[in-house]
Design a protein around this nucleic acid. Structure first.
Length: 281
DNA sequence: ATTTGGATTACCT
DNA sequence: GGTAATCCAAATG
């Protein structure tokens, strides 16, 4: 980044968070047995955490005040398709300036594979000031402006220029604040009360609901103080993940049809349901 | 320097 | 199902 303010931000983050350490391994990947995606999904804090969290909670995050199950670089350092699937069921957290914490369970993602992917901003190896985040280390955010007025939130994965787009969340915590943010930020004039389903069911909707804008570009999801990812109580079954064509990438080329969008089958929080794709198993 | 189009949303019929 | 809104930034000259 050649922008002095961005450089300062970057430096501040680096210094402030340089004391963080992460375990050698997170342990085995999330178990894929378990139950189908939960109906209410949200378990009370008192509820038992999965055993895989034991390791993560150990010495690294001893303070209960600290992020109890924050996912680190090891989680993000996997190929885009694997990461896109692994995101499902994890909880995205946004801490606002006043300390309010907003939480949403990720239910829909898209993988963008890098230079060979004709639908990716990094197609053909294009690297520009805008998409730099795609080429940075796994876990780096890539936030860009679309149609001059909306934001999209991506997370860099393993693989040059590869990333995952976050497309929909199930609101879990801070729902009224999300409603307020959406009502305030969206372009519509009238202030009809938005339904819960309308809060985070789209890549730009979730950015509005969580107050995520361009200032989050190139931040580190593994270390930032205002946004992070927590291990959800349980991920969906493999069979509960639908693989469908990506949304809004035009009508040309083989890449348009590839099943690189993933969402939780039957979730009412998904932005676009693909009935045809759901028939395949 | 100018042009072009977009990883969307909201509101219309 | 269709399309206006709205402007950044990549691509082109």
């Amino acid at each position: 980044g050649r922008h002095p303010i961005l450089q300062m931000k970057k430096l501040r983050q680096t210094l402030f968070f340089s004391h963080y350490r992460f375990p050698e391994k997170w342990g085995t990947k999330k178990t894929e047995s378990q139950l189908p995606p939960s109906d209410t999904a949200n378990s009370s804090p008192k509820e038992r955490l999965p055993s895989t969290l034991g390791l993560q909670r150990s010495i690294y995050f001893s303070s209960p005040k600290a992020h109890p199950a924050r996912l680190g670089l090891e989680f993000f350092d996997q190929p885009a398709i694997a990461l896109a699937r692994a995101f499902l069921g994890q909880v995205l957290v946004r801490r606002l300036a006043d300390g309010t914490e907003l939480r949403g369970r990720i239910v829909e993602t898209e993988a963008y594979l890098g230079p060979e992917d004709e639908a990716a901003h990094s197609r053909g190896g294009r690297q520009t000031p805008r998409n730099r985040g795609m080429f940075m280390k796994p876990g780096t955010l890539y936030v860009y402006i679309i149609y001059g007025m909306y934001f999209c939130l991506n997370v860099s994965s393993q693989g040059e220029g590869a990333c995952v787009l976050l497309r929909a969340l199930e609101p879990l915590e801070g729902v009224e604040m999300m409603r307020q943010l959406r009502s305030t930020l969206r372009k519509g004039t009238i202030s009809r009360v938005l339904k819960d389903r309308e809060l985070c069911s789209g890549p730009s909707k979730l950015c509005q609901a969580l107050a995520i804008d361009k200032s989050f570009d190139q931040r580190d999801l593994a270390q930032d103080e205002a946004v992070w990812l927590e291990c959800g109580p349980q991920g969906p079954n493999e069979s509960a993940i639908v693989a469908a064509a990506r949304v809004g990438i035009g009508h040309a080329g083989e890449w348009t049809q590839k099943p690189l969008r993933f969402y939780v089958r039957g979730s009412p929080w998904v932005s676009v349901v693909d009935r045809v794709a759901e028939k395949d198993v």
